[in-house]
Amino acid sequence: MIRKIKLTAIIAFGISALCFAQGRTPDFAFKLENTSYIMNLSNGKAKAKNDTVFYNLYRIGKAQRIAKEIKHIVNKATGDTIKSGSYEVINNQIFFYQKEKNKATLLRLYTQNEKGLLTLQTAVASFVGPKVTAPAAPGISPSPSTDHLTKVDIQAEFPGGISKARQFIANNLKYPREAQENEIEGTVRVKFMVELDGSISNIEIVNKLGYGLDQEVIRVIKRMPKWAPAKNDGKPVRSYFTMPISFRVN
């Protein structure tokens, strides 16, 4: 079962009007900067050997479809998933992922330029999902690093130190169902700022994995308690902290 991502856009009157004109309400809606999009699901040919579902991407106010990407392909006879797909919306980009069993993940990336137009790039991920049966507890890799705005005498620190940070991550991080079903593992690198009062801000995913893993890392980082801020000459200073969080399956 593919997990729907959290939608941040408000469905305005213009969205509703277009969708009703198409005879349906949207399955997904979101914005890239000031441009609104909707995405509807459609089925492949009824008499086909496989059951195929597609994502259909539209720009609000335009009837022409921008993209048609695979959500899943299932063998009707056996019920086996031949290919599964998902998508994410981050800043001015739409990421579509397609995964076949024992094959590298295919990434199709639509990026919106300054004129509001989308350009397409296609790439293949460098890893192949392993054959696994059950997910192990996610964890934090042992060597986080700091990236300071200024040189500091004392680095920012999670309450109780890095071991407590590992424990906090392990206790709060959940392995998204979409990632489990697609047998996705790897490391998400997240960068954030520790403010003068120890609060967390400016969370940014440096290395992405998709399949809901990036959003899950952001969710947990936002829940962290206040850190001890970095210090320079005995005074608190703002500093960046980069933390790799690993997802592994048994």
Rank of each mutant, 00 (worst) to 15 (best):
N250K: 12
Q98Y: 04
T111C: 03
F95R: 12
R177Y: 06
N171Y: 00
L7V: 02
T119P: 00
C19P: 04
Y87L: 15
E33W: 06
V53D: 06
Q215R: 06
G161H: 11
A67E: 09
T25L: 14
F20E: 11
A9Q: 09
T25A: 13
K235Y: 08
Q22A: 06
K208C: 00
T146P: 01
A136P: 00
A230R: 09
L120D: 02
K49I: 11
I169H: 03
G23Y: 06
R177N: 08
T52M: 14
T150W: 03
S145N: 11
L149D: 09
L57N: 12
S42A: 15
G234Q: 06
N34D: 15
Q180P: 00
V190L: 10
T111H: 03
E204F: 08
Y55V: 06
V89D: 05
K99E: 12
I66H: 07
F247W: 13
I94R: 05
N172L: 06
P138A: 11
M243L: 15
A125E: 12
P138V: 09
N50Q: 13
P176Q: 04
R189G: 00
L107P: 04
P144A: 09
K164F: 07
P135G: 02
E114T: 08
N171Q: 13
E33L: 12
V188G: 04
K31I: 00
N232T: 13
P225M: 12
E157R: 07
K115Y: 07
V220R: 05
R189Q: 13
E69D: 13
K6V: 07
H148W: 09
Q167D: 12
V188W: 01
E100M: 15
G210N: 10
Y87N: 05
